[in-house]
Design a protein around this nucleic acid. Structure first.
Length: 283
DNA sequence: AATTACCCCAACCGCTCGCTA
DNA sequence: TTAGCGAGCGGTTGGGGTAAT
């Protein structure tokens, strides 16, 4: 079939944007909003490809953009997220308010990748997530590591794991690990009986909305300050566990699995998790 | 001061996905 | 069911800036 190019390249400006072009694009979007990128240049009077306009706006002109001066905290978060997600820059950027995927990608390629090479990961057998075949389901393995003592954990606590959404509207496969699970040596699901247990946890979540948080994230819990230290401790151990359990692509945190946003609404949407409760449905 | 080498990052490109008619 | 469009993603490129010689 072959698709039409996004725009005719003839007669269009290319390369660096001028201040005037920036001004035109900014005022047009302020007046008419984002979207309809293909027609935007014509309507705004810009001799640019629509894609180019979109990129310029999203990566540079948007008012909420933070540029440069990536903090140590942000850097650490990028490293952790990259460990989990691979080169999924947009997902990583989604966890860093004000940062764009392009900036993070550039930062990684120019700065962090070198550091990563200089400091090889502790588990040599673990490949970069992006180089591994996609995992298809949650297959539990034994983490075999102490996570954190019972008294350290905020309550209630749930972790949601879902397959990596390729685009919007992901198919959710939600597992909620009961707090009690985290008190055991193996925090990860090992058997279908564990999955049955996770149902109980869901009920608890329904009964017990998260305090002061409309969402939690595997890498960025949004909990009360009171729990900050516990959160950091927990996350540190959790990441170690992730490293230990996904050396061969069959751990639940391998390739296509990400710990990601768990909104209250998502937590309550249990339908998509049904297959997890039925061992017959496992391959 | 001139030249070269290297680094950084904005922008481009090709591809894919979701949606819709 | 399928073709086409709009949009987003990740890899790559090229040019400007700066350090080194």
């Amino acid at each position: 079939m072959g698709r039409s190019p996004c725009c005719s390249k003839e007669g269009l400006n290319r390369g660096a944007w001028t201040a005037l072009e920036d001004k035109i694009l900014t005022s047009y979007i302020k007046a008419h909003g984002e979207g309809k990128w293909r027609n935007l240049p014509k309507r705004a009077g810009l001799k640019r490809c629509g894609k180019s306009c979109r990129l310029r706006w999203l990566n540079y002109l948007r008012p909420d953009i933070k540029r440069g001066n990536i903090s140590v905290d942000e850097e650490e978060l990028i490293v952790r997220l990259h460990k989990l997600l691979g080169n999924r820059w947009s997902l990583i950027a989604g966890r860093l308010p004000g940062r764009t995927d392009n900036e993070i990608k550039n930062y990684w390629n120019t700065t962090l990748a070198k550091k990563a090479i200089a400091q090889p990961p502790p588990f040599p057998s673990q490949e970069s997530p992006s180089s591994k075949p996609k995992a298809k389901r949650i297959l539990a393995t034994n983490g075999n590591s102490n996570i954190v003592g019972p008294s350290k954990l905020p309550s209630p606590l749930a972790i949601t794991i879902r397959p990596q959404p390729v685009r919007a509207k992901p198919t959710w496969c939600t597992l909620l690990l009961a707090q009690e699970k985290l008190h055991e040596n193996s925090p990860l699901l090992k058997s279908t009986s564990d999955i049955q247990d996770s149902q109980i946890c869901k009920a608890r979540c329904e009964d017990f909305p998260l305090q002061g948080a409309s969402e939690i994230r595997l890498l960025d819990f949004d909990l009360d300050d009171h729990f900050q230290a516990e959160k950091d401790h927990f996350m540190g151990n959790m990441l170690e566990t992730i490293d230990n359990t996904a050396p061969s692509g069959e751990g639940i945190f391998s390739e296509s699995w990400t710990g990601t946003v768990c909104t209250e609404e998502d937590t309550l949407d249990l339908e998509s998790t049904a297959f997890l409760l039925d061992p017959e449905d496992w391959p």
